[in-house]
Structure formats: C-alpha cells, structure tokens
Computed example of a mutant assay.
Amino acid sequence: MAISLVTFLRILFGILGSLMLLTLVYTIFSDGLPFRTDLLTPWMAATLVDFYINVVPIAAWVIYKESNWIRAGLWIVLLICLGSLTTCGYILLQLMKLSTKESEDPIYHVLLCHSNKYSVVDKHRQSHVLIARVVFAALGLLMLGTLIYTLLTDGSPFRKELFTPWMDATLIDFYINVTALSVWVAYKESSWVTAVVWIILLICFGSITTCVYITIQLSRLTCQDPIYVALFKSGDRAESRSEGVLI
C-alpha cells in the first residue's frame, strides 16, 4: 500500500525532530554547553545569522496560525532557543490535528489558520504587503553582506578546523529548517523542475534564497490580497480567503 502524504510528513518530521534532539544531547555531553566565546568564530556567527533569518518566516507562520498571542509568543521563544527541534514539534502537532478529510490535502490545511482572531478586514493590507517585501528584501541583503564580508575577512568556509561539534550541530539545525521550507516550496511550485531548482538554491545559499523566494511570492500579491495568501499555491488561494482569516 502506498504511504499517504500526511503519514510521510509525520514520519519525516518525527525523524528530523528526533535527529535534532539526539544531536543536541550528544553535542552537549561531548563538547559542553555552547555559551562560550571560543565557539563564536566568524563563520559560526555567519551561520547563526543565516539560521535566524530562516527562523523569521517560520515564526511569522506561527503567529498567523496561533489564535492566542501569548501562546504564539511562547512558540517563538522556543523557536529562538531550540531551533528546528521546535519547528519539527510544531509541524507534527499541526499534522496530528488534521481530520481525515483534511489529511487528503495536509500541507494546505497545516498552513491554513481557521481562527477568527483577525476576522475584521484590515484596511491597510497594501502597507502590510509592502512592509513584508521590504523586510525580507532587507534580510536577504543582510545575509548577502554577511556572506561577502565573512568570505573576505575569514576566507573559505570549507576548512576542516571550522567544523567543530557545535558548528556541525548548528548546520544540522539549519538544514532541518531548510527541509521544512523546502516542503513548502515543493507545495507552492506547479513544476517539479522549478521546485527542485529552488530547493537546490536553498541548500546552497540558505536564507538568501529564502528571502528572494518570499519576496517574489509577495510581489505577486495584489493590493487587495492579505499577506497570508502568499503561503498558498495559486489554486488554493481562493479557498484560503473564504476559510482563513484576513491580516
């Protein structure tokens, strides 16, 4: 019997969350706590910038999903502190909440917020879209500048001495979040060729690609569109407007 998409996603994020937990525990026991100045090399700092820029769109989605601002704030604190472990836990929780009918299109229903916390139509949608475009464009430029600066001042990142236990753990953390973003990209893109190209770019250029991709999606919104419709592929956008909330 062919495995369903929802089952595959539950297994995938369950395995990735377990991998990150084991990596975190192993690295703490083998290399101590990460709060040491000797670990913060230029490339570690650049990797952390890359990591946390990728956390921004995930945090924005969590804010959209959660009906309670306190609960949303707690999830964001966990995202900042525990990274992809929280990402996997949150996605698994959303997948487990799906009904049998919703499981037929799990990514759409996991992305969608059914809450009415923004049930009043916002009259300033256009400014929100413009602000989001500026924010992600600025974050992309920040990462590009960080990458160029670190290359010029500290040389290539492909050096054996840079791969300390905590750098390895950070890279695993980073690429688990990239996997979550890649699932979204694969859902968004109508062509598998295009999706694969974007995913390869995500793997190679990290949050620079994330910011470029999100900025492109936001540029496709009209002045009348709420920001959240950028989450959905074009065929699901009309349905998301009727089922979702307006922000």
Rank of each mutant, 00 (worst) to 15 (best):
N68C: 15
Y149M: 13
Y26M: 11
K101N: 04
A195E: 04
T86W: 07
W184I: 08
L181H: 02
T41R: 08
S99E: 10
T164F: 06
V25E: 06
H128A: 13
N177L: 09
N116P: 03
M167K: 08
E161C: 01
L78K: 00
A186H: 03
W184Q: 04
I28P: 07
A60L: 12
G17N: 12
A195Q: 03
I3N: 07
A59L: 08
F8E: 06
I200V: 13
I91N: 09
K101P: 00
T7K: 15
M20K: 02
L79A: 11
S219D: 10
I247W: 00
L231I: 01
A137Y: 15
G17H: 10
L231V: 04
K101T: 09
S115C: 12
G145A: 15
V55W: 03
K65S: 08
L139S: 12
I15E: 11
L142G: 04
P157G: 13
E66M: 07
L16Y: 04
A238F: 02
E102A: 10
M44W: 09
T164C: 08
R125A: 10
H128K: 14
N68S: 15
W184K: 03
V134C: 14
E102N: 07
A138Y: 04
T87I: 14
D236G: 06
W69G: 03
I247C: 03
F136Q: 04
Q224P: 00
W69K: 14
V178K: 02
S84Q: 05
I28R: 14
L48S: 05
C113Y: 06
R220Y: 00
W192C: 04
L16N: 04
I176P: 03
Y52T: 01
V212K: 02
L111C: 02
L144Q: 05
S207P: 02
S18N: 05
S191K: 09
